[in-house]
Design a protein around this nucleic acid. Sequence first.
DNA 1: GATGAATGAGTATTCATTCAT
DNA 2: TATGAATGAATACTCATTCAT
Lengths: 204, 204, 204, 204
Amino acid sequence: MATKRARRAPGGTADRRQQILDVSAELFAERGYASTTVRNIAERTGLLSGSLYHHFDSKDAILDEILTEFVDELIRRDEAVLAESGDDPRRALEGLISVTLNAIADHRPAILLLQNDWPVLRDVPRFKHLSDKGAIIDRMWTSVLEEGRQRKVFRDDLALDLVWRFVRDALWVAARWYEPGRRYTLDDIADEYSKLIFRGLLQK
Amino acid sequence: MATKRARRAPGGTADRRQQILDVSAELFAERGYASTTVRNIAERTGLLSGSLYHHFDSKDAILDEILTEFVDELIRRDEAVLAESGDDPRRALEGLISVTLNAIADHRPAILLLQNDWPVLRDVPRFKHLSDKGAIIDRMWTSVLEEGRQRKVFRDDLALDLVWRFVRDALWVAARWYEPGRRYTLDDIADEYSKLIFRGLLQK
Amino acid sequence: MATKRARRAPGGTADRRQQILDVSAELFAERGYASTTVRNIAERTGLLSGSLYHHFDSKDAILDEILTEFVDELIRRDEAVLAESGDDPRRALEGLISVTLNAIADHRPAILLLQNDWPVLRDVPRFKHLSDKGAIIDRMWTSVLEEGRQRKVFRDDLALDLVWRFVRDALWVAARWYEPGRRYTLDDIADEYSKLIFRGLLQK
Amino acid sequence: MATKRARRAPGGTADRRQQILDVSAELFAERGYASTTVRNIAERTGLLSGSLYHHFDSKDAILDEILTEFVDELIRRDEAVLAESGDDPRRALEGLISVTLNAIADHRPAILLLQNDWPVLRDVPRFKHLSDKGAIIDRMWTSVLEEGRQRKVFRDDLALDLVWRFVRDALWVAARWYEPGRRYTLDDIADEYSKLIFRGLLQK
DNA sequence: GATGAATGAGTATTCATTCAT
DNA sequence: TATGAATGAATACTCATTCAT
């Protein structure tokens, strides 16, 4: 049973496969994976439900591809940031913050989906590989924080694992309320969050 | 169909109703509302599924009671904090942070549930009242921040609505990884988070 | 997931479970296992298809119970025959022939089902245990034939494994055309078949 | 929709049509008609499922051609045997037995298929014509037996219709366990079966 | 209060078949 | 001839809910 792979239509037409992935991601984010039916996806794509199976083996397979694509790209971007920021922990941290928030622009559905359904998904063997990739990202964050402390750029009276969790959680959850074209751009948010994280809320 | 209300078992036995609520909250938090079956709840309670309907009108009714109880108590505690902290915005903010994190001790399942399933629940008419109550809590936070700025306790070069979102999000998501009896207590986390929020990450 | 077991209705009413088994056996025999739908079974039982799952875990589980019951009883009857016939191979063989043909009376659907669907079923792990039981029956037949040859009751110029196959096949397939209440009883058939097997077709 | 008939490939290449028939017969025999999908057939042929419809009108049409070819040839062979054996019933019967068993060599899949799926197929209007042809074969067998009794070659104390059924059933079912190249050839089996049928199992 | 049989609408998935390219 | 995308009806199975006992 060979995995069904994308074959770009020769004319360069937008692919059905990609359309299904996009539609599915939106729906999964809106209603949750379990509550999104295969029929919902088909309808929104303009197909009958059976036709989806011409492109994907199962509902799970669709989800897997959505999440894998997102996580892989995130890792790529995070690695690029670390490579560019040399040995400047502050620049590195700013970079990670920016990458994370800007991921919301291209991958909002995947991010929401991951937040809402991860507690269930994490126990499904098929999605185990995402945990492993998540661990890679975690390690990038924590090593930047460690580095910053050792170079005395960051305070040494804070529990760095809690700092990491605090920042990470706040950033990802922003996908819930962020709406493009309203008040703040993602870069605005990155700047404000960085200011708060680096300098704190109190007047000196 | 009159709403079924709690009737304490005559002998003073631990209530079946409460047992069902606790079991349901756990299951909803573990697997998500949609993926938890009424049979799951019944099994874990030691009943058959039909029997649940002697205690609750529907699966929705169970969920409603779980969430309402949690939100109501949270409002009560937040209000108490504001009442006690007089006109000291820093103390007020510390209080709100502490209440929020400590809620994880008593209501972890409800918090997780709300995070995972809220995107779906928010659109169900039955749960509309929770949005209203959520707005009350939001207003308490934002007014504390405003107050702090006006009194020049907090910096005036930060977008306060973003500060509020940042802090709120980081706090609630802590329910995902917090585990009682490990490394940090909830008070530890509240202290560390407060330190970071007030003073920032950078060495002076 | 406890196997759902029969609970005889206290009043001694004919069981739904048994009714489902009987109806299913008939249908499987008529149309084959794959072509019988769960809806077919439900309809003939006077239920809706979902209701079957209150009594059985799956379509497979129904089939398994039908076949297991049949094979177990057949083994019991064959063993009884061997026990009774002492060291008289001719009597033993007559007994096995009679038991086999008479099984058609009580278990015609199961026999037909086994004949038609066995080539598919034999490869399903769930039904592996039936192969093992089949081997037990085979051994009873072949040991009777061996015994008969050693005691010089049976000819010694025949390949006994072929004799066994020949007889076995002819007996079981009789279930296809036998119809109760017509021309020959099962005992008639057993007698005629025995005559042919023991003495052959030719005039002396 | 004209019935699609064989068109030999111009170059004398082995025919696609025949390849599809062979592959289908194998699969139908292995898994049963209902459980064999058109996709299975296409895969094993090295085509995509849609392409089969250039050669056959439907799955039923494939099955029909397989069975018709087999039954027609069987009738031809049986008729040849009767023509050759003149008025010697014993030779005629031996001939029919041999033809039947030897058919296993060339048409095993068709024979298995017919055994497993006949109970379902017999009720499909499209396959009614096979019943008629089956009746022709039956009549050949029974007339040989009658002839043998009248000429006092066969015993007169046996129910001939039962003898016929017994022999027929045992012969056809041999297709289930016969494996070419193992222990017995089809002629061996024909000889042993004939010995048993004519002379019986008992030592004189 | 509790049981367990039954409902009926819904779920993901399969599959023979069609047809434009 | 062959492809591969699409159909639409069917399939086994699930599940919140009802209700007579």
